[in-house]
Amino acid sequence: MNLIQTTARSNVLAQTLFVALIGLTLVFAAGFAQSQGLHDAAHDMRHSTGFPCH
């Protein structure tokens, strides 16, 4: 925790951006990626969370 607070601000921003990117990548994989396997597996979740499904 101390590390975060003593690190330069730009570093904190980079870490924040990194965390956001991991999150959005996860959402993309679960909601958008078009591989048939992923689509089938995530099918019900995509429909009920309103991602365009097919």
Partner: peptide
Amino acid sequence: TYCGYGLA
């Protein structure tokens, strides 16, 4: 999905 949203 919600872990992804949680991270963002």
